[in-house]
Design a protein around this nucleic acid. Sequence first.
DNA 1: CGTTGTGAAATGATTCACAGCT
DNA 2: AGCTGTGAATCATTTCACAACG
Lengths: 213, 213
Amino acid sequence: MTSRERVPQPTVKRLSLYLRDLEGRNDSPRDTVSSRDLAEAIGVTDAQVRKDLAVFGQFGQPGIGYRAIDLRQALRKILGTDRRWRTVVAGAGNIGRAVLNYGRLEGKGFDILAAFDSDPQVIGTTIGAHRIHSVTELEETCRTLSAEVGMLAVPASAAQSVAEQLVRGGVCGILNFAPVHLSLPPHIAITSVDLTVSLEQLVFRIAANQGSG
Amino acid sequence: MTSRERVPQPTVKRLSLYLRDLEGRNDSPRDTVSSRDLAEAIGVTDAQVRKDLAVFGQFGQPGIGYRAIDLRQALRKILGTDRRWRTVVAGAGNIGRAVLNYGRLEGKGFDILAAFDSDPQVIGTTIGAHRIHSVTELEETCRTLSAEVGMLAVPASAAQSVAEQLVRGGVCGILNFAPVHLSLPPHIAITSVDLTVSLEQLVFRIAANQGSG
DNA sequence: CGTTGTGAAATGATTCACAGCT
DNA sequence: AGCTGTGAATCATTTCACAACG
């Protein structure tokens, strides 16, 4: 596979969207999909689709398109969802609960091996078939389980500290739901999701739409 | 205010992050913050901060920095959180519940006026002080309430249809949690949040780190 | 003929570097 | 001296347009 060092960030996001579309189809082994099909499905240009896929090699056949099944498998491999990821969840508040109940994560390759919270009322309870452990055990448990991915759903005030515990526990990537910037060693991958930021983007665009008629 | 038509998308996102940082400070009326401070807080360069802010005018004083209180207020105005937004929530499953319980939305200017679901077991119950109505009433209720923003947290299979109902109900922006691309008129603003896409970005980057490690 | 893959051109975003203000 | 605002330069991404292929 092409070296992953020079992949445009926007491309990675779109690859996920192409894959999402392909996973939603039930195609027979010979079904093909064109760059135009995928482009319409996610709302970009067909040239964009071809450029995105070309970063990782040649998947298509001129005059025909892409074999849906093969492309799907190739995208899974590129994105890393062709294997399983040992995952833990830190924080069982609002967002943590939603994640633990989400269910579709296992199907996408993410095995939730443990969940943690600091609230004595919550520790020991079960959410979405996952038992909640004390956050004091987080670091050691992560190490024992060889956890690779941490989903961080604790309050902003605790986020940096718990993130550092995850890192000491050996995780190499954190999905951060807390509304703070995490400062961690550069070899730790971080992706952040912030509801407020998303809402602000939305209403900015509403205002922009209205301003320009 | 400068025309909103030519604002780089990445800038809008960073403005939210600057604001998030400023909201987390408790500053006295004379406190100032430099582009370097903000840059470190969110992990970008100081030149980037100045360029971002310069899009909307001149807020700073050479040699001094930005007055924290003023900058915060300016960012709220730019992003649209200096006013209130009439908001509804469609879908009271996992994600809808997390949103309804989230609590901090009101403080950010988003008034949740109504929530809807299709499940008879859920209709009539109360989640986070919000009563759940039948989705059959969605369009009319949105119109009656003059709803402006819809948060879409229904299953993928229902998302396009419910989104269209929101639009007919008069909302002008949708925060889409469903894992599908929405096709709506161009005057409707859409921001999408997809847990799976975020996770795939994360694990792609983990693999990239290890490949070049 | 339809469709891919891809250089070349165009557009967009970030960084540099420094004049000018406090 | 410290810091902003900004034109110019660099870097990144997207779009164009078309040769080559099935």
